[in-house]
Write a protein that binds this DNA or RNA. Sequence first.
RNA 1: GCCCAGGUGGCGGAAUUGGUAGACGCGUUGGUCUCAAACACCAAUGUCUUCACGGACGUGCCGGUUCGACUCCGGCCCUGGGUACCA
Length: 906
Amino acid sequence: MTEYNFQEIEKKWQQYWNERQVFKTLEDPDKPKYYVLDMFPYPSGAGLHVGHPLGYIATDIVARYKRACGYNVLHPMGFDSFGLPAEQYAIKTGQHPAETTETNINRFKKQLEVLGFSYDWQREVRTSDPDYYRWTQWIFLKLFNSYFDHQQQKALDISKLPIPSGLTEEEKQEFINEQRLAYQAEISVNWCPDLGTVLANEEVVGGVSERGGYPVVRKPLRQWMLRITAYADRLLDGLEELDWPESIKTSQKNWIGRSYGAEIQFPIKDFGEGITVYTTRPDTIYGVTYMVLAPEHLLVPLITTDQQKATVDQYLEQTSKKSDLERSDLDKTKTGVFTGAFAINPINQQHIPIWISDYVLISYGTGAVMAVPGGDQRDFEFAKKFDLPIILVVAENGSQEELQEVYAGHGTMINSAEYNGLHSKEFTKVIIDRLEQEGVGKAAVNYKLRDWIFTRQRYWGEPIPLIHTEKDGVVAVPEDQLPVVLPEVEDYKPTQDGQSPLAKAEEWVNTISPVDGSPAKRETNTMPQWAGSCWYYLRFMDPENKQNLADYEKLKQWSPVDLYVGGAEHAVLHLLYARFWHKVLHDLEIVPTDEPFQKLVNQGMIQGRSNFAYRIQDTNTFVSFNLRKEYKTTPIHVDIDLCRNDVLDIEAFRKWQPDLTDAEFVLENGKYICGSEVEKMSKSKLNVVSPDQIVTRYGADTLRMYEMFLGPLEQGKPWSTHGIDGVFKFLRKFWNLFHNDEGNLIVTDEKPTAEELKITHQTIKKIGEDIERLSLNTCVSTLMICTNTLTNLNCSKKTILRDLVIVIAPFAPHLAEELWQLLGEEPSVSLASFPQYNEQYLKEDSYEYPVSVNGKMRARMKFGVDMPKQDIEQAVLESEVIQKWIGGKTPKKVIVVPGKIVNVVV
RNA sequence: GCCCAGGUGGCGGAAUUGGUAGACGCGUUGGUCUCAAACACCAAUGUCUUCACGGACGUGCCGGUUCGACUCCGGCCCUGGGUACCA
């Protein structure tokens, strides 16, 4: 072999790893464990682009490094293979989602294999595999068969639920069903009549469907819900101990949205019942000038006076037509109507009007608020619009202020009867005590978090393993009958009345009750895509298990995931849902830990860089970027493969699309320069770079190192291949440490010099430290510096190179394997131990001090590392350069920081 | 609006605990090799100033703490991401 032939080398070693099963994970209780996991991908039809592997490369480096450090490493990969795109493709083409999914997975796997990842593919899981979703269904049944015990703050088996006495059998069943962690509810969903389906919130844009632009309405539908709200406190408090980015913790905190306040009852004049409101500011109770109910509030029809009825009904009609989006986003100006009824402020017996308005949400708190326009922006806007009185009750700095604007902060109480002068925070406590004593209120906690709507009217998802019976209500499919396998259907579209496509599989739907064998019907809804990803990290620990979702001992051995790497877009949903399931499973003693992912890192998104050509309006002529201002132009996306460094390949462009064959060009300096913009990498923007192209040209090792070299892992960055040559050159330079110009191995057994040992051991030390803190870009720099130094020293000594091959192996594993073999080492470098650095080689006898005068660096002076401070000070002050800068003055102070710096202050 | 992250040469970025700002790579310029080009290699490369030695300035802006600030504190500006009438 004469030169660094990456193509041959990479193929050879991938085959070697595969055949010898080098990365098969074995249970080895003698070694410390390390579980490093990527968020597994949805296998889309588009295949991998260069952004996908960023996190995978990072975890692979960590996995390989940890293995070399003596850890037993679990580093698996799988596919989140249920999902909407495969189903929509099926609707369009009739091809079974299972088939397209299989094709896509195979493509993904091939692309991943080419990059040389050290996954144990024997542990691969696919969420759409019946052997896998059997356990997803099993977990669902655990949720169905559990309730949340508020005393113990944990889930317990439903059989332990204390049932109030004196209930009929029917009432008893109802009571139990209402306590389950998986329960049914009639809730309002996004219903699109034209598409005949329910849409997720993300699929509704501006009140119409994202696809097709059909109108979407709210429609109440029976749904299965998961009681995630029961876990709100534990999900919130559990964040404290996790080694997660602060931003993700904050997102989850905000999503859960715990707030402390009070519930207060306001009696209604001439009406039996009162209104209960939730407020975080009970201290502002003297500032309440009106009440507002959500339009959907149950009291609205009861308290509306005859006089106001027509107005109210009209308003209700109007708001019910609005989508959520219109209610919140578009229409910021407040609307509302008076009900004609009055409430009584329990603290001062004031009569205050009750209004309804859609700025109050039925789904939060009690669906009713006490309006304090002096202390709340929304109430203020409403009061201004409808000319309601405004009373200021909290003053920022003790003095009475003008009613110009809202003051929502804390301060001194004013206009609050005997409480004037008290601090508002103090008064909060006082007023809650008083309300409690008088029996008209109490301290209360509220959450933004809602229960999780767990059903989809879709085909390509896990069937919900429940059976609707005539006599016994909803019953679970017996465990030994799991999995409930998806039936074959002819048509993947939902039914006209909003049922899942499964409803059409009559033979499958009609079944018998597991209780008494009477005719019964299967639940036809399927689970959302989040379900499978809620627990896949558990299955990796024991993927073949037929008896359990995973063996408890194995879970104990591997849990928790030590390092979890994935995109920040999963900050709340996936990570919150998975934590919720994990906690339930922990309560039921199925998993040993309370939290699934100890350390979490978000890799930044790699964006694409799109190219544009500028078509002059109404012509087929394109003008070069810098001349475009002289014409009226429309920019069009140009496939980035047609450009090189923003210069358009005109011939290729003409051949690209039929209507461009006779395109004309206005050039600058003889070239057509394209415009560019950084955008999300996507097919439609023609800016997708596939790793395959890079691998063919430079090899997987170069791609791996280059992606790491781009910058910090957590940081987003646009993809650019500027600089990839530098990384490629570096690998070739590394290769050339072992070879001469003729390609012959020149490694010698000579003893290394102190200098050679120093740079090598510095490198070993820094690489170890930097991998630990996931600073992988600086690892690449360090390896470059080391290679440059050794090249300059003409060092080809085996002692040195052997260590470095192991150090570079996590980054460029194929190259390392090849060189390892050339050194005569065996078996695989992937099984070699990471070298220990020797502190002795790093020691210096002297250090060159930067010497500054008044903080400005003026000279460098070399002193022994053990030289006493006084001697350094003396030597510095006596030196000519410093004398010059001091200019005859007496130095006020001389600071000597040993091994760091000297600073003379005059 | 609120929350989070970030702002350092022509570019990507480095500086881990407050201690030589700009490591490493790209790009650019000059050179060697070559008939020539590509590749490769060598050298220079923050800005301003100076024939040169050197000097001044310099990490978004303003101010502070410190012998010393990219790093800490206060205020402001800008960019990216998340979220949105949550009482």
